[in-house]
Write a protein that binds this DNA or RNA. Structure first.
Lengths: 269, 269
DNA sequence: GGGTATTTGTCCGTATGTATT
DNA sequence: AAATACATACGGACAAATACC
């Protein structure tokens, strides 16, 4: 009895899922039925199902049953782009989304002035407690929540003339272009750092993720630099991992072209 | 009684962890002690602990106890680089690792000739079932497992002269340079697609991850192109998300410099 | 809207197995 | 070998969510 019973049951169900005997989206037998099929207690069956749940293979819906998870056709976000234009503000993503025939919505930003915490301060190379402007937005595609984004600008930019950063409306043409014209600060490049973690409560709610940490989120820190290497912005974007892919293009890469669109498993085109 | 009891217990413990009352790495009270503290049954306490486990906050060790997870100082892998050089073969990473004073080991490749499955075929734009060379390697840093990598080359490259692709030894100077000299195929760029998923059994074993899917892995597909836009290689690299960060540099970005190395929480320098 | 059947969720108690010290 | 602590497995009772009539 090397393998505990609940794992054997889980393994048996897993094989049935991956062989196609239990198709994506289909309903499993109820816990009572499985209890009889496997001659186990209901709790043991539940342990097997919980195991499959953390593997991301099934989900349970109270009052309904247990279902095989459907693969999602993921959104693809390209991180590389024109360094001197957008690179993480409002305009860039719109075009990309429109190009794939999906409709994007962006909330008006929630603008706050606050003191830099440890993370913001170290990324912007300013003193902890120094004032920053925070602009927070929610993004939806085709009505489903897609990302949460917060940009932090040093308050010194506002004093240098970029007063519209304080307005709670999207900045037409993008914040990067606005910084160039309002206070002659030109973005020269940016650096993304990608981490993965469990969503917090707010994120789980907004993205409609299970409250436990089964589905994790991408946590992308984008620090933008001007030509002198000063850090002019930190943008933190959060995406649910289950319905997103990230793309990085380096060197000469053929255009996105060819509608040989992928159905899911391997990151394809 | 809006919140079930096990969630209340979990929340209480979570607050104690995040407030520092239970420091990273410290041991929680045993299940029996918690049962008395919270006047709940041992099973309910276990449900609370299981909840914290899926959130990635604690881990249980049979025979020892339950411990607060320690944050790991992550390895950072930069995906952007010189498009015409390495970009995903053996040499590139070595330098990067050495630069951060860590010692890297790379296994000799396991070389196989096999037929392209659906994923490999669609990424290389060849027919499913066509022959490809697969070169698989394990990478370690400071003795701890770091990544699993498999590169797929169309068999046509071997016929065009790149016969050393079939040898089960690392290719000095990198496979990309070798392709250039052996059959005049020059890499012009590459495209990475980043996904996150639960590890499979082999990956969980190699990376010493819990067998359930709590810690997920980065799944990075790198397709390399020559100047004509032909796809010359697919490299699939898998990293555990808990101890890795990905880096993307675009445009002018200051050098990595300054040893103000981060201790963990926010992706910093 | 209400009522009922179905299905999963929570909680308890108990016994025994297995890993570690 | 013994003690400790988590893991597995069982059975039972009731709650909560959902679907259907």
């Amino acid at each position: 009895m090397a393998e505990p019973m609940y794992r054997q049951i889980a393994e048996d169900l897993r094989l049935k899922i991956e062989s196609g005997e239990l198709p994506r989206g289909s309903q499993l037998a109820t816990e009572i039925e499985l209890r009889e099929q496997y001659s186990a207690s209901r709790n043991t069956v539940r342990d097997a199902i919980k195991w499959l749940t953390t593997l991301g293979l099934v989900e349970t819906r109270p009052g309904q049953g247990t279902f095989v998870i459907e693969k999602i056709n993921p959104y693809v976000t390209t991180l590389t782009g024109d360094a001197s234009s957008g690179g993480g503000d409002e305009t860039v993503y719109i075009a990309e989304v429109a190009a794939s025939h999906r409709e994007s919505e962006i909330s008006d930003p929630r603008v706050e002035i606050l003191r830099a915490d440890r993370v913001v301060a170290s990324n912007l190379r300013i003193d902890q407690g120094a004032q920053v402007v925070s602009r927070h937005q929610q993004r939806l595609i085709d009505g489903t929540p897609w990302s949460l984004q917060t940009s932090y600008y040093p308050m010194t930019l506002v004093r240098a003339g970029a007063t519209r950063l304080l307005e709670a409306t999207s900045i037409d043409g993008g914040a990067t272009a606005y910084l160039a014209e309002s206070c002659d600060i030109h973005q020269a490049g940016y650096r993304d750092t990608i981490a993965v973690r469990a969503p917090d409560e707010n994120e789980a709610w907004f993205f409609k993720l299970a409250a436990d940490g089964r589905v994790s989120v991408f946590d992308i820190f984008r620090v933008a630099f001007d030509k002198q290497g000063n850090r002019i912005r930190l943008t933190v974007t959060v995406y649910p991992c289950d319905r997103n892919r990230l793309r990085v293009d380096v060197g000469e890469v053929p255009p996105r072209g060819a509608p040989g669109t992928s159905s899911v498993p391997g990151p394809d085109e």
